[in-house]
Design a protein around this nucleic acid. Structure first.
Lengths: 242, 242
DNA sequence: CGGCTACTTGAGTATTCTCAAATTGTGTGG
DNA sequence: CCACACAATTTGAGAATACTCAAGTAGCCG
């Protein structure tokens, strides 16, 4: 599943929820930030809510490592069809899908104020040549991206609306927990419409599914605040596997 | 879109269709077969219809370059849910999704008798270190895989059944054409059930969609033989974008 | 030429979507 | 700080799409 949400040091209204940022640097180092910094002139860049990190068609010149905030990646077809293909948060590497192209292949939008490390790509490439470990990690990150997308395709193809929403919440919870925050209580960074697009549903359907999961006692929903009350209930939901 | 079908020198009943194999080696060289052969002990391996090229859980030790035949990649969840995530044909590199793991992450099954080049991974890695171009191509191949999957997610999320089937056929046609075969007349290598799984539909729905596209005059279907009569009709189908 | 599997088609059902309205939040200006 | 306008969310009712179940047909293998 490709999803996300976290708010390391998110400066938003609901910041009261969630523990201190502090930890949760592991994933940065998974892609070798330490080695990177020695060879690639990484630049911190702040992005305001609603801003594009990049848009399809802009020259591809860098990858981005999310430090704070939450971003959505969107595919956009010529005929206007549009789809959210993932949510990226702290520790996620953004832009890898555009490697090998001269222009970015999709849009990335900040769902809240955030900060990224911009990693200029040519320097990144030469660094990879010098540091095999870095290369291996980049490759692994790409492969993992493929696996995530495939798992999400499996969910889309085999789960009904309610279980799809449940799976999404579980994925968020897990990513959240991995970043050192509570996996049982978090704030959705995206609108119902964004969730719906990612889940290949309509926002009304997502809303209904959330209400129903709430009524079943599996979660407690209050607008964007989610509390996981019964993870197993969510996982094995009553709905049949179709 | 992640799809495929081709039959370079397919030894099947319907081989009469399509031109001679001969050409269509470009994609092999896209990933640097020439350079590869000098450094990686590639082994030809024949796979019979229905055989697994590999299964999830088997030790990951090689990538595979499809020479002939058509393969499907399948995700399988612990709870039994199953989904075809793509079709691979001549020139496609198979196994990249498992890079970075010790075991393969999915199943790959031959839809017809075929042959692959087995590229042992450790030698592949060291070759990449020596030949930057090869490394770059591997990375590009991975990134393209991500883009394909994302485009397919867009289709799944925004198109109704009939247009999904149409998009699938157009994708097959294009890949087929790129391999030097007719893009207007080809044989499906997969069953309706496999198509359906990939398209996140039921096989009956796929069947109906094909019949309807036939009735509309956009295609001519006869079991697995497809003739594209009106590509634009397929592309812009009457169905509304929902 | 069976027996089998794959495919097609029909009829009724279920799920999700569409359209519409009500509600709750949020941000802004007075 | 409150009132208002706007955006996001929830909920309902009916419609549409895709699914399920079932039967029938057609090609393939032995």
């Amino acid at each position: 599943m490709t999803t996300a949400t976290a708010f390391a040091s998110a400066p938003t209204a609901t910041r009261s929820i969630g523990r201190t940022p502090a930890v949760a640097f592991e994933r940065h180092d998974e892609i070798g930030l330490a080695e990177l910094q020695a060879h690639v002139p990484a630049v911190r860049r702040k992005i305001a809510q609603g801003q594009y990190l990049y848009r399809a068609g802009q020259p591809f010149a860098a990858l981005f490592l999310v430090n704070t905030g939450c971003f959505k990646t969107c595919e956009l077809a010529e005929d206007g069809r549009e789809q959210v293909t993932g949510f990226r948060m702290r520790g996620d590497l953004v832009g890898v899908e555009s490697i090998g192209l001269s222009q970015f292949a999709c849009d990335v939008v900040a769902l809240e104020d955030g900060e990224v490390w911009e990693l200029p790509y040519p320097p990144m490439l030469t660094a990879c040549l010098r540091i095999p470990v870095l290369q291996a990690r980049l490759t692994s990150a790409l492969a993992e991206e493929v696996r995530r997308d495939r798992l999400w395709m499996l969910a889309l193809g085999t789960l009904g609306a309610e279980r799809r929403v449940a799976a999404f919440l579980l994925d968020l919870a897990e990513r959240h927990a991995r970043l050192g925050f509570s996996g049982r209580h978090f704030i959705l960074r995206m609108s119902r419409a964004d969730m719906a697009s990612y889940l290949a549903l309509k926002h009304e359907t997502v809303s209904r599914a959330l209400s129903r999961l709430d009524a079943l006692g599996h979660i407690a929903v209050q607008r964007r605040e989610i509390r996981i009350l019964d993870a197993d209930g969510l996982r094995h939901g009553a709905e049949a596997v179709h």
